[in-house]
């Protein structure tokens, strides 16, 4: 039995140049579709309580008596011990920047002159490494530091909806006062 030899394809592929005019004139067949996808998510016990407390202007965590961690956002199970968590614990709306980034391009790909400052904030009263991913404002980008102390700035009660955005943003704490600030 002999193997047929297959002639290799030429290295250069001759393409057809396209421009907007060709598309407009219907020279090319395209098919488009706009999906209609809408979702809701049951928040259940842990997320539900967390969001309700955000609406109250408070942060709540769950603790595991076995590994003694205080976890935020709260969860009904400890992923390390694989057992139910035990107690609700209020924690402070202050914390320490664990890591941050300066983002110069918005989510819809616009170049930003002033960067957004997403940060993971370790919450006072929760276990080390337990934090909230949120936004830091009211600080010059060059002054943001890992280890910086920050406090939540809450939206006014009437504007809160039971969402992570009920905290408007986080800002550096005045060293003399560690009280939570309210947005005007």
């Amino acid at each position: 039995m002999t193997h047929r030899t297959i002639k290799p394809a030429p290295n250069i592929v001759q393409g057809t140049p396209l421009d907007a005019k060709a598309l407009k004139r219907g020279k090319i067949f395209l098919n488009s579709y706009a999906p209609a996808l809408r979702y809701t998510w049951d928040t259940g016990e842990a997320m539900g309580r967390y969001l309700a407390e955000l609406k109250n202007g408070r942060l709540i965590a769950r603790s595991c008596r076995k590994c003694e961690r205080v976890m935020i956002p709260p969860r009904m199970f400890c992923e390390r011990c694989f057992r139910p968590t035990d107690d609700w614990v209020y924690v402070k709306a202050t914390g320490t920047v664990n890591t941050f980034s300066l983002c110069y391009v918005s989510w819809d790909v616009r170049r930003l002159k002033q960067p957004e400052i997403p940060a993971v904030i370790e919450i006072d009263g929760a276990s080390p490494g337990m934090g909230i991913l949120h936004l830091v404002r009211k600080v010059a980008p060059k002054d943001v530091r890992i280890g910086m102390r920050v406090a939540a700035v809450w939206k006014p009660p009437a504007q809160r909806t039971g969402s992570i955005t009920d905290i408007a943003y986080w800002m550096p704490i005045n060293r003399r006062s560690q009280r939570t600030v309210s947005a005007k």
Partner: peptide
């Protein structure tokens, strides 16, 4: 329906 549990809590 099962609004009393998140999908994670249901799986747990």
């Amino acid at each position: 329906s099962s609004e009393h549990l998140s999908f994670k809590e249901m799986m747990f």
